[in-house]
Amino acid sequence: MTASAGAIGAPLLNDEPVPGASFLSLLETRGMQPVWAVDQASSHLELPEATTVLAVRFADGVVMAGDRRATAGNLIAHDRVKKVFAADSFSAVAISGSAGMAIELVKLFQTELEHYEKIEGTRLSLEGKANYLARMIRGHLPLAFQGLAVVPLFAGYDERAGTGKLFTYDVVGGRYEEQDYATTGSGGGVARSFLKGAFAEQLDKAAALRVAVEALIAAAEEDSATGGPDLRRGIFPNVVTVTAEGFAEIDDADLVGVAEAALENRP
């Protein structure tokens, strides 16, 4: 990533072209946007990859969960990675793919949403946020072809419609709205199969948390790149909810019971 530090203190006014309410455009006008210049040879780099994340719609909104493992080749690079983030107060974003770029992308996305909200005095619609994220993924297309893909999952509470909504993406920035549940990452296929059986309409919060954690355990059993809950070392999945009250992170202390029950439940 390159950025010229001098531009941070650039004049307050008179930017050309005018960046409007977009933070990314502001970075571009000052030549500070994150840039990864990767040539063909370096596509064999074994960079940390973030793996399974999922989202499930329930009665009050959506629950989103991710395991904690990042792998580099056949090694476990990190075992306490955070993959699920608040995008703003009414939406969450989870990442899979090349971890370093994905985390920077999330930071940029978070800043973008807050920047827009402050300048315009109103939050973007959920649809608007989802579309903007697609645009950011599209910007990474050349890197995706070199094996450095970033594939997020986006979910939020639609304040107008009064329901939770889920969006998945592909590497070219294609945006797909999902009905009930969505997964991505190396263990995503297994998690999706699990959710197909376990999903029900109008799940309550406790049931939704259990289903989400159990789907991650199912993925961890089949996929070596996905880490299940580790009770001995105190590693629990990232689990968040987005409801009419907004974004909330579930504490590890509250997940102990959920993880224990889910592990008991497994065949």
């Binding site: 941070i8 307050l12 006014l13 960046p19 502001l26 970075l27 800043t111 300048i119």
Partner: peptide
């Protein structure tokens, strides 16, 4: 208003970079 928007840009740019 120009100054308010300029201030938000200044702050977000600095917070994002550092």
């Amino acid at each position: 208003e120009t100054l308010r928007v300029g201030g938000i840009r200044y702050a977000d740019l600095k917070g994002y970079s550092y």
